[in-house]
Amino acid sequence: MSVVSIAAAFLLAAGLSGGSASAAAAEPLKIELIPSPSNPSAPRIGDALMFRSVIRNDGQKAISGVIAWVSLLEVDPGKEHPVDLEDWSAQKAVVLAQIASGQTAETKWHLRLIQSGKYWISVVAASTADAVDRISGPVASPSVAFTVASKPVVETGRVLPIASGVPLAIGALLLWRGARGRRRRPTPKDAGG
């Protein structure tokens, strides 16, 4: 495992808010990320996964303007990088108007698997409200790891007959029309009668 992946693993495992013990103690927001029981056990490209996030306000005051979003990290050796969610999910973020003290907010996150590899997913939340100015940064859920197996989605057995058959059929039609046209065309001898 490379240095980058170790660092990323540390950040995700500890949560982005876990920089220091005192900061962690002050965090009123807690996030849990739970994979759906219906998720395939060995997901492949093209499958869909669903996760449920539960954001809880453990603080004394209501928190408003909470933005939650999905963070997806590829952790394959040599390919460690955050994944652009374009094509993976149409649901990039949600805005929760307010979470009262002691209350929770649930959100479902749908993910379609586009590329094979090892991934860690987490949900990050931050509030823009003044009441939580003391929060030094966004709060992240513990990450959930999953592996996507590759799948050749375009089947040769279907493509080859179509890719060769249709042009051949049109080509045959062309030749037939050409031969028919030549037979019908009057020769100079015919014209001379």
């Binding site: 050749p152 989605v153 375009v154 493509v159 890719a163």
Partner: peptide
């Protein structure tokens, strides 16, 4: 279509 089945990377593209 033939490019899709002959190229390994393209062959792994999602159907959509």
């Amino acid at each position: 279509a033939l490019l899709l089945v002959s190229d390994t990377e393209l062959g792994l593209l999602d159907n959509a």
